[in-house]
Amino acid sequence: MGNFDKKLEKFWEIFIEHGGYVKVLTGLQNTIYIAVAGLAIGILIGTLIAIIRVSPKSSKLLKVLNSLCGFYVGLFRGTPIVVQLLVAYYVMLPVIGVNIPALQVCVIVFGLNSAAYVSEIMRSGILSVDPGQMEAGRALGLNYRVTMLKVVVPQAVKNIVPTLGNEFISLIKETSVVSFVGAADLYVAFNYIGSNSYEFMVPYLVMAIIYIALVAIAALIIRQLERSLRKSDRRH
């Protein structure tokens, strides 16, 4: 293992003296930014899609919207996120003719991608609430929207939080592909260290450890959130 010591030394040299840590911190920041902002966009759009997809198809407009949402979900679940990134950055942007930084494009694509998954999570969460709850609200003279908002959705959220947490964790991990369009994430940072020291073993090992730590922290936050939701419930 004498060899390993040397490798560690080399890594340390680049990491500290050649400003590798700045790149790593930037990469970490971008990774977290893309995952959090992506999930936020995903929850916003995903909730909207879920509500459209579970509402009764009483009008033509709703029917059209519903099939559009179905198409959207199929599209984003049917292609790998790398392909979506490449198409967005190298096809959509030049065609539209706007210039958006790669990081912003990543946030948008990750947001749109997770919206498809979040909408399915929300939809099954809403459908898992006993239909009798909706009936009881409607029988009291409350309309669909109010019953949904005050009775069904609060119960659905409780079912949704753990699965949404999973989605967040997989988002964190999936951000490792953003270098395909030139955004600087953890992979880019450690790749930089590796190519400068001609030694990839330690950088990639450290990268793996950072990902594990990130996911562990995320899991901890999710568990706390679940617990506080259960507490506000005061059910025994």
Partner: peptide
């Protein structure tokens, strides 16, 4: 028109 159901349907979150 008050309605009472077989399975009560009280709001579980309230």
């Amino acid at each position: 028109m008050g309605m009472v159901f077989q399975h009560f349907n009280l709001f579980n979150n309230k």
